[in-house]
Amino acid sequence: MADLTTLRRSPLAHLTDRMAQASHGAVGLSETACTGMVSVRVSAESSAAERIATVLGAPLPAACGEVTSGEVTSAGDHHALWLGPDEWLVVTGTDPVALADQLEAAVGDDPGLVLDVSANRTVLELTGPKARNVLEKGCPVDLHPRAFGPGRAVSTTLARVPVLLWQTGEPTYRLLPRSSFADYVSRWVLDAMVEHTG
């Protein structure tokens, strides 16, 4: 079969240059295009959840805000983000189609759903000492270190549209908006960055 990945186009391809130009000094924005993502829905107490944990190399997170990471192969690692009591998003550095097949086999005959949703969201990375100031202009979640920190991810809104907000490092946040919102979110963030990048 033809390699369909050559047909993939990032929803923010037209803004790559603008993001690069606007990124200097205290804050920077970039897109990690075409990141693999797999949606998992299964009962947290089921044996299917345990088999999924084996595939991922880490248990599914149990509570809001938690992220679990498992390094399985040298090809990349998996991060499971909590979306709901029976819903998770696995962000993977490996081939999402192969991972979805593996996870589907892990669910087996138990009730559950595994779906490759890589095109559903894109990944924006906001980094720099002023990254939190930029997000606080339009995010209702308390991002102060006393309430939020590296290794935490929540589903919330940014500039009134839904995003997944994931802090990966001390000054680094990943924003996962839906592809259809990606243009709006990145333009909003670029505007919010202006005061820090001049």
Partner: peptide, 16 residues
Amino acid sequence: AGPFAERWSHTAGCRR
């Protein structure tokens, strides 16, 4: 005008 039981959905979060 007082206590009222109402339904809410966390649409931007866990959707429950």
